[in-house]
Nucleic acid binder design. Structure first.
Lengths: 110, 110
DNA sequence: CTCCTATATTCGCATATTAGCATATAACGA
DNA sequence: TCGTTATATGCTAATATGCGAATATAGGAG
């Protein structure tokens, strides 16, 4: 692990990779099973070049690996850790949004 | 919790708030103790308007709250959960980078 | 080799993010 | 009130990110 402020650059870069709705959707699907580019494009209703580009970003970020299967390229998770982190993020937001809603209610009631 | 693809928008927005080196540094400091804008600016060697802007982004993202103290504004964490999540991210990256280094070595040796 | 399918890349354009400077606003003390 | 300190906001230029359309590349079948 590099030291000093470099760490924050690395962390920020990693978070940046995650911070896109489509990439989150892709990772969610990848948590269930590996898939080809075309399959993602179809399941997500997004055009092929866009999916390819985002998969490329995930790959460059070290989140996924690829395997050639005929003319197709199969993408899979490099490991499960990132998905676990995202699940914890989900829980965090679930709680946070609940709190926000309660705050909103208490404001309305007053 | 909103449903469907909205969730990914919310998650991405939250991650986007985190995905900046300076904001990560600020959160790290905030994990230790609350502070004023000027104190952050000094500790981080960043000019005041920049710090103020990033603190504003954190506030709007629901990560921090503010309290007036004389002419100063004290920023503090809204809760500890986000910092915990970031610590898990740290662990994740620590392992990931270790693996990468080993991969690099094994490539060099072959 | 040729065609077809699957994937990746490039380009152009619109939008978003950021830092730095100047300036506005707010709180306080004399 | 006036001056000082602390914070926030407008503005601009530079950079980054995003998408869609067209194009390039790679693999397999015949």
């Amino acid at each position: 692990m590099p030291e000093g402020n470099q760490v924050h650059l690395i962390k920020a870069a990693f978070l940046k990779v995650l911070a896109h709705p489509l990439r989150l959707r892709i990772l969610e699907l990848l948590g269930q099973k590996e898939q080809s580019v075309g399959q993602f494009a179809q399941m997500l209703s997004v055009d092929q070049p866009t999916v390819s580009r985002h998969l490329g970003i995930l790959k460059q970020g070290g989140l996924v690996t690829t395997r050639q299967d005929g003319a197709s390229v199969i993408y899979r998770l490099q490991n499960e850790e990132t998905v676990q982190l995202l699940q914890q993020l989900t829980e965090l937001l679930k709680r946070k949004l609940q709190v926000d809603q309660e705050l909103l209610k208490s404001v309305e009631e007053s």
